[in-house]
Design a protein around this nucleic acid. Structure first.
Length: 469
RNA sequence: GGAGAGGUGGCAGAGUGGUCGAAUGCGUCGCACUCGAAAUGCGAAGUACGGGCAACCGUACCGGGGGUUCGAAUCCCUCCCUCUCCGCCA
């Protein structure tokens, strides 16, 4: 979320940023102009409400004094405050609405790309930074298979069983393949905790609205999320509404819909689409000491995505699932250190692929392809010989203070007074499901078996090979 | 889920209708004392928003939301969270 004061002074910079993210010119003008108008409105309302409050406070003080010495004067003053009351209530309501209206619009604005981010419309304009390793060499005449062909041939990857119980975009892994998935997750966590200086965290994977707003999955990307609601929740909200309706003890909102909506909103949970959400929200509403920064945390969690906008894409195999495992990296830093940390984090993710002996490249996403909350993003794409192309396996983003503002996450600088917003970074280190895909395709043998990469063997009881005859 | 007790500044912890943004202690920072440190003494310091070039002024904030009142940290309602006991449960 952006500081409206900053927008006031830098409207042109914001407009340029929105255009670089493929917003059409008319919408940009309309949006930014609308924000400035809402802000004027908000400040007018605040000024008006504050004048009323000031007058009320001052009269109330006088009443307190007059009560002791001159009761008649006190009564007269009370009458004056009573006159004020309606105006004041209206002004306070107007202020509340104006603040909420502006906030609602601000939450819809994406982060501003850093100047160094390459301009561009879509993934074709991303800029390759480096290529590491080399394509695996297969015997003459052997055409490498895709991961699902390998897995299904082994009888260890079952999409049909998954579909029977859960529908499309789920998979059942069995035997040594299930074990290899587990091994990959363990290997990554151990690398990040033992070598890369991250602290392992086991966070909730059901989170409240506030957490999802904090990292900016909400409000804009609601359709990508899974929502968790108990039957009890809906019954409870219903009964609450009826009770309140029957005995409106308070003169608060008695509108049934508003009540139900409010209660359900308080009780519902979202399934995390990435551990970025709980890990970053560790610092929500916290004031950290600078000496504890950078804070580096990692977690292996399931991730859930509705994949609402990707019907028909990657329908075969494990590339795009509703549920997948991922090791996530999150860093909380000072503003001065965040870009340096971004490089460090990307290197930490790359190390996973290096040790697995996988061929990959790193690209800088262009302005038009970058995520909503990001200032700058590196994608790591791993080589998949079965598909004969690079596929994203990690995405490392620096978000500046964008998420910190939404979460109100701050730190106290070692020097100087006050607090500043932290900078947040997140990256996959790496997607476990896709890593399994990559291992299967890169380490496959003509006999249908798959060689276990050296670094995974300790996690698989020394096993050197799975499947095959 | 039921019963009870709580939620106050960085932390601990007073305050139960007005002069309370809030005592006190710890911690933090500055100054004095000291060769230096410790101890001691004196002093400073919350966050956000609005106005102002600024000094500064104003407003809000005592878990969240609502209400009563001229006036709420304090009274009432409601939700959330924590603790204790009971119930249920992987």
């Amino acid at each position: 979320m952006h500081d409206i004061k900053w927008i006031r002074d830098n409207a042109d910079a914001l407009k340029a940023a929105l255009r670089s993210r493929n917003w059409e010119a008319g919408k940009v003008e309309e949006t930014v102009g609308g924000l400035l108008m809402l802000d004027d409105e908000r400040r007018n309302c605040i000024a008006m409400a504050q004048r009323g409050q000031e007058e009320r406070n001052s009269l109330s003080k006088q009443i307190g004094q007059a009560m002791k010495s001159d009761p008649a004067l006190a009564e007269a003053l009370k009458a004056r405050v009573a006159q004020l009351k309606d105006d004041l209530a209206a002004a306070e309501m107007a202020e509340k609405q104006a603040v909420a209206a502006l906030e609602k619009e601000l939450l819809e604005l994406p982060n501003i790309p850093l100047a160094e981010v390459p301009p561009g419309a879509d993934e074709h304009d991303n800029v390759e930074q480096r290529v590491v390793g080399a394509k695996p060499v297969f015997p003459e005449g052997f055409k490498p298979k895709e991961h699902f062909e390998i897995g299904e041939a082994m009888g260890l990857m079952d999409f049909e069983a998954a579909a029977r119980m859960s529908g499309a975009r789920f998979v059942v892994l069995k035997g040594q393949l299930a074990r290899m998935e587990r091994a990959l997750g363990q290997f990554m966590l151990d690398l990040h905790t033992d070598v890369n200086g991250y602290t392992e965290v086991n966070p909730p994977i059901l989170v409240k609205d506030e957490a999802m707003y904090g990292t900016a999955q909400l409000p804009k990307f609601q359709d990508d999320q899974f929502l968790a609601l108990t039957n009890e929740d809906s019954l409870w909200a219903f009964n609450r509404a009826v009770d309140t309706f029957d005995s409106p003890a308070s003169s608060a909102d008695t509108d049934l819909n508003i009540l139900q909506g409010r209660f359900l909103k308080q009780r519902r949970h979202w399934l995390i689409p990435t551990a970025e959400v709980p890990l970053t929200n560790l610092v929500r509403e916290q004031i950290l000491d600078e000496k504890n920064l950078p804070m580096r945390v990692t977690a292996l969690t399931p991730c859930f995505r509705a994949e609402a906008g990707s019907a028909g894409r990657d329908t075969r195999g494990m590339i795009r699932q509703h549920q997948f495992s991922k090791v996530e990296l999150v860093s909380i830093t000072t503003p001065e250190k965040s870009l340096e940390e971004h490089e460090r984090m990307t290197a930490a993710s790359e190390e996973v692929l290096k040790r697995l002996g996988l061929h990959y490249r790193v690209v800088t996403l262009c302005t038009g392809d970058m995520g909503f909350a990001s200032q700058k993003t590196y994608d790591i794409e791993v080589w998949l010989p079965g598909q004969d192309r690079f596929r994203e396996i990690s995405s490392c983003s620096v978000c500046g203070e964008f998420q910190a503002r939404r979460m109100n996450a701050r730190y106290r600088p070692a020097e100087g007074k006050g607090t500043r917003f932290v900078h947040t970074l997140n990256g996959s280190g790496v997607a476990v499901g896709r890593a399994l895909v990559a291992v299967l395709e890169n380490y496959q043998n003509p006999d249908g078996s798959v060689t276990v990469p050296e670094v995974l063997r300790p996690y698989m009881g020394g096993l050197e090979k799975i499947g095959g005859k």
